[in-house]
Design a protein around this nucleic acid. Structure first.
Lengths: 233, 233
DNA sequence: CAGTGGTCTAGACCACTAT
DNA sequence: TAGTGGTCTAGACCACTGT
């Protein structure tokens, strides 16, 4: 019995996945090298490379030069989260988006904020508080500090019509950042804004973005009880 | 002034990113096609393709055949989460991992569970409850249903020494799954296990995995107050 | 030192889709 | 229908790393 040639890298990827899944190649096993697989599959080595590279990126394979390619012992699940602009997130659910700016002021941030943003401890920063709505119900509270040394244009923006969430993406590019997810109990202000009980379990997203070595903004998004962040695995 | 050729796809990617960041190419702009960029950079089109494809995967570019490549108007941040085995997660923090099986029983799951796992509503499933520890402190509670129609070997595994979290990865491959993050208030049992107050805000991860059309397992991981899930952006 | 993956090249064909 | 990205190929050279 001869097998038909696998024509594209997706087919090769699927066949390799199938063999791993069928335990033909077991966790920890060394699999044939690219040249041999290319010969077996009847395609170019570059095609096999693309397939195996993709599988390595998802954590199913471990690849090392000279050592070869092994089936991962404990495949680390990789979940890719899309973090869209909140307006798009709401509209994507088929709901009507609403926005209210609650506060815009200049203040010296807490030491924890200036510390993590690497700004002088005594310097004032632009501080914003806003509410995002979905079908007129509270969707998320946004609390934000903006480093106007990095984004001077923000000084002239009132953020009355457009949220900082959206304005910054178009006006303040970032090179990298950190994001953290956690749970927190609602304080009185948050409970009032989100129409929930004080102490209710809120879903919290903290994000800090950088433009090279300069911090851009630090934001906390607070979601009402029941909010879920979902993704495929 | 002539520019030196860009030798590899990472250099091309960096140069394209630089131009976008410098607003030489603005959000919404059409950028030159692959052939022209290859000529400008002095490299093969495949090299440009690899660079632009990578940037499109991160959401910075929108690419469509015939329509060309545009700078994304609202770059959707893509965060890749690594979801390792809990033992590795703990050990990676330099802490000592501990594990306690709290319960292992057969039961008919709630309709919500059998419904989402697409199993007969009246069929018993293997149910597990376990506690993961870091330096002898509670790290996470694991509540799990296992579809033994898909993973019959689980019937003979006591899960006393090894957690289902870890055993399943080695013995029950999955093809795809869903994961959801949320916040929940601690009930009495959870509060006792995690040494926190009833009603405290807990971080919750719900995961459901599939082997093609057959569900494998549905698990809820519950983390004590203060737990954060972090990643780079 | 030798084997493996990582990448580049030049050319080709194809798939999709805006016009 | 024509322009663009998506991919494959065959061959080459290189980088890394186990032995």
């Amino acid at each position: 019995m001869t097998k038909p040639a696998l024509r594209d890298w997706q087919s090769v990827r699927d066949e390799v996945r199938r063999r791993i899944h069928a335990r033909q190649w077991k966790p920890g096993d060394l699999i044939p090298n690219e040249t041999d697989l290319a010969a077996e599959f009847g395609c170019a080595r570059a095609t096999v490379n693309r397939a195996l590279r993709t599988l390595a990126e998802t954590g199913l394979l471990d690849r090392r030069r000279k050592a070869g390619t092994r089936v991962a012992l404990q495949p680390v699940a990789k979940a890719t989260l899309d973090i869209p602009v909140i307006r798009h997130e709401v509209e994507g659910r088929g709901q009507t988006y609403g926005y209210q700016r609650l506060a815009r002021d200049w203040a010296v941030p807490p030491a924890q904020v200036s510390g993590s943003m690497r700004t002088p401890a005594s310097r004032q920063m632009l501080h914003l508080c806003a509410l995002h709505l979905a079908d007129d119900l509270p969707y998320a509270v946004e609390q934000r500090w903006i480093n106007t040394a990095t984004v001077p244009a923000a000084e002239r923006e009132p953020f009355l019509q457009i949220s900082a969430n959206e304005w910054l993406l178009a006006h303040a590019p970032y090179t990298h950042g950190d994001i953290a997810f956690s749970a927190a109990a609602a304080d009185e202000a948050e409970a009032a804004l989100l129409s929930c009980a004080v102490g209710a379990a809120l879903f919290v997203v903290d994000r800090l973005t950088w433009d090279n070595a300069a911090s851009v903004t630090k934001v906390r998004l607070i979601f009402p009880p029941g909010h879920q962040l979902r993704t495929a695995l």
